[in-house]
Write a protein that binds this DNA or RNA. Structure first.
Length: 260
DNA sequence: ATGTCGGGGTTCCCCCGA
């Protein structure tokens, strides 16, 4: 059975309840993973009326927050507070088919890419180290990792490699750290396996006058799979149009389909 | 330094975080 997963940094699930509903109605993924819900779990709107009656989430007031919505039953596997930040940045759940879905919101890391002067950058690196160590301790199998990883690793994942080398999200130290995390789990970057060539973005700043025309994007949102199921993935895409919806999130949804 | 958003609190503006 084909199985479609979607990841979307929604930047407030309560403010954008209507956009989530639109996505579910128009695209009907089997699983939708949200980040930056910015809501306590009990205040996340229900999407049960649209057929998504199962949700596993972690939330906190005002910041962060991750949720996994599903058409079919899912059971919680874990909710990890990597680097002991006290944040709601991860939750994982297992489908009835035995597939584990990890939903991550990696810290953005502030403005200055130097942990000596910017504590948030240090927290981002520490968070990635903790992720890496968790996958070294237990190699993922039959698993999918999605989320806003807040790093655009490849040169063609940003509008200008040269101009972003010192910008948090594309610095060599972050890219190396993300690479270690990916390697620790033998994770396959499904999006780039399916779309190996060309510029590809999932985020465009609110600050650009005309985000579409300027197209100064970055690929911060990712779908990875463990090597045992990565070959089953196809149909990866970014729903760029959602960035142009009314009162949009600054991130676009990313999709992949698995024949499992 | 700046741009534009969202949330929360010391609210009807200001701060933080992104």
């Amino acid at each position: 059975m084909p199985f479609t997963v979607c990841t979307w940094n929604i930047n407030s699930v309560r403010l954008r309840e209507g956009l989530v509903a639109r996505l579910l109605e128009e695209e009907a993924p089997d699983i939708l993973c949200l980040q930056e819900c910015k809501s306590p779990v009990e205040k996340i709107p229900s999407f049960g009326a649209l057929g998504y009656s199962h949700m596993i989430a972690r939330g906190q007031k005002g910041y962060n927050g991750v949720a996994i919505l599903s058409k079919t039953p899912i059971r919680e596997v874990s909710a990890l507070d990597h680097a002991d930040l006290g944040h709601a940045r991860h939750v994982s759940a297992q489908t009835e088919d035995g597939v584990v879905i990890h939903n991550y919101y990696v810290p953005a890391g502030g403005d200055v890419p130097d942990r000596e002067v910017n504590e948030k950058f240090g927290q981002k690196l520490d968070y990635l180290t903790a992720m890496r160590d968790a996958f070294r301790a237990e190699r993922p199998e039959r698993s999918i990792l999605v989320g806003d990883l807040n790093i655009a690793p490849r040169e063609d994942d940003v509008w200008s490699h040269k101009q972003l080398l010192k910008v948090v999200s594309h610095t060599p130290v972050e890219v190396a750290q993300l690479g270690e995390t990916q390697e620790a789990g033998a994770w396959v970057d499904v999006t780039r396996r399916n779309i190996p060539e060309g510029k590809l973005y999932s985020w465009w700043s609110y600050r650009a006058k005309d985000w579409d025309a300027a197209d100064k994007g970055r690929r911060l949102d990712h779908i990875w799979a463990s090597p045992d199921i990565a070959g089953a993935a196809h149909g990866s895409r970014v729903l760029r149009a959602a960035r142009g919806w009314e009162k949009p999130s600054d991130h676009a949804p990313v999709f992949a389909t698995f024949d499992l």
